[in-house]
Simulated scan of single mutants.
Amino acid sequence: MENQNTKDKMFQKFTWTLTNFSMLGSKELFSETFSLDGHTWRIFMFPKGDDGDFLSIYLDAGVDTMPHRWEKIANFKLIVINQLNDERNIIKESSHTFNSEDDDWDFTSDISLDELCDSNRGFILNDTCIIEVHIVIDMLEHEKQVDVSERNIDNIKLVESIENRSSVEMISTQSFGEVVDFRSIGKVEKDFIPLLEDVCSRYPSLLNSKKRRSQKFIEWALTALGRVLYFLNTKKVRDMDDDACNHLQILWEELETVGFDLSWLKPHVQSALGMKSRIERVLEVKRLEEKVISLEEKTKALRTEMIEAELNLEITRRELVKAKEDFENCDLDAKLSYGKPSIIYVNE
Results as ranks from 00 to 15, higher is better:
11 F>D: 01
18 L>G: 04
20 N>W: 03
25 G>P: 01
27 K>T: 12
32 E>V: 05
34 F>H: 11
38 G>F: 03
43 I>V: 14
52 G>S: 09
53 D>S: 13
61 A>C: 12
70 W>I: 06
76 F>S: 01
86 D>E: 14
86 D>L: 09
91 I>L: 11
94 S>V: 01
105 W>K: 02
118 D>A: 09
123 F>Q: 00
123 F>L: 03
125 L>C: 10
133 V>P: 03
134 H>A: 02
135 I>Y: 03
143 E>M: 06
150 E>I: 08
173 T>F: 00
179 V>D: 04
180 V>G: 06
181 D>M: 14
190 K>Q: 13
191 D>L: 11
193 I>S: 03
197 E>K: 09
222 L>E: 06
223 T>R: 06
224 A>D: 01
226 G>N: 03
230 Y>I: 00
238 R>H: 13
258 V>Q: 01
259 G>N: 02
265 L>P: 00
266 K>F: 11
266 K>W: 08
268 H>G: 01
287 R>V: 02
287 R>H: 13
289 E>W: 09
291 K>G: 02
293 I>W: 12
314 E>F: 13
318 R>E: 12
322 K>P: 03
326 D>M: 05
327 F>V: 09
336 L>H: 14
336 L>T: 13
340 K>F: 15
341 P>S: 08
343 I>S: 11
346 V>G: 05
347 N>S: 08
348 E>W: 07
